[in-house]
Design a protein around this nucleic acid. Structure first.
Lengths: 205, 205
DNA sequence: AATTGATAGTTTTGTTAAAAAAGTCAGGAA
DNA sequence: TTCCTGACTTTTTTAACAAAACTATCAATT
């Protein structure tokens, strides 16, 4: 019986993988259940045997992606030598996550404001983990006596995360282009973020 | 002849004022030229005598608004007692500007990525003035010996403005930042920005 | 020069039918 | 039973096009 369940899990994984590729390459609305089924040489009806509907399938993929991301963060939790290292890790990991899966997130842009609760749940977990990572780093520094104690650590970290996301190229003309920054701008962005980290960390001491 | 031009200018002003009220209350796309003309008890054709088209009319109003905002900044230029006061003034003034004219800016939300160059020009001027205000404040503090000299003042200010721009409501999804914030969130954003000021200013000392 | 009614030209909105895709189900194979 | 499918139904998207709403123009008037 356990073997049977394993088989199911393997098939579920294959479906998730094929779906991920489709969603990543074509986005949510331009991916059809027939295409996913076709990629796997199975009938569309079988997809509905494993997943209740299209959006649940999408969210299952999303949950998997989020799980990988969360694991990255958790593996590093509490293993930083100083504050800057923690901040840098957070910035780089998050950026990588977004860039690598950019097209996958089409779903977010299409549904604008009224997303399923499940999505919010996943996003919440991610944000929680990010905050946990950085608040942990700050508290650790406090305990080491490197920075003075603060009352509202979480709020501070939230502001810091938001601030980082605001740093873009091109003099911050409000959303001039929706696209991700070009390669030649990555260094500029990185330098700006380093500068923010410098000032921010100093502001915490 | 000067009197004639004055009359024209007065009428132009009246048109700008009526247009502003309409745009502010109903937004760009739900304001018609007929309605503006009706408010002024004039024919629609007369509007086209004074302004080439609807979007030029909108941008003329925008230019006027921006002018008022710029004047606010310039009047205060160099009149700050300390850094925090300058940063607070900048953030508060900007906040007020956005809140007071929130619906007016729905033009930005509708056209999203491809706005007329004129708009970017205006936005550029505003940003220039903001940078000037804050770099001036920093330099002044340096001269007073309150903070230690920095080489890259402009970069620092740019990072700060970018960071402000990135500050959105809590639990924001990865791409939510691309959307225009909702009105009910503006105060929350404002509070976060005040916290950023605290840390940032301290980080400069 | 300032103003307007009439009207031309363009964009938005509704309507509807066809196409495409989501989702269901009775039944077959393993 | 569990896994799977072809055929079917229902819902959503698309395309085409006419009607309505709006922008923009212009000859005529004060």
């Amino acid at each position: 019986m356990s073997a049977v369940i394993d088989q199911q899990d393997i098939k579920r994984e294959k479906i998730l993988e094929a779906s991920y590729q489709r969603f990543l390459h074509y986005g949510y609305s331009k991916t059809t259940m027939n295409e996913i089924a076709g990629d796997l040489s199975m009938s569309k009806a079988l997809l509905y045997y494993y997943f209740p509907d299209k959006s649940e399938l999408y969210m299952a993929v999303m949950r998997k992606l989020a799980g990988d991301y969360l694991k990255q963060l958790e593996d590093k939790l509490g293993h930083f030598t100083d504050l800057r290292e923690a901040f840098l890790f957070q910035v780089n990991t998050h950026h990588e996550f977004i860039v690598n899966n950019y097209n996958f997130f089409d779903f977010f842009r299409l549904n604008e404001q009224n997303l399923p609760d499940t999505i919010w749940e996943i996003v919440g977990h991610i944000r929680e983990a990010e905050i946990k990572l950085l608040t942990g780093a700050i508290q650790s520094e406090v305990e080491k006596g490197n920075i003075k104690p603060v009352a509202n650590t979480i709020e501070i970290v939230e502001v810091f995360l938001d601030a980082l996301h605001g740093i873009k190229v091109g003099g911050a003309l409000p959303h001039k282009k929706l696209n991700f920054p070009h390669k030649e701008h990555l260094d500029e962005i990185h330098n700006k973020r380093l500068l923010l980290i410098d000032i921010f960390v100093k502001g915490l001491k």
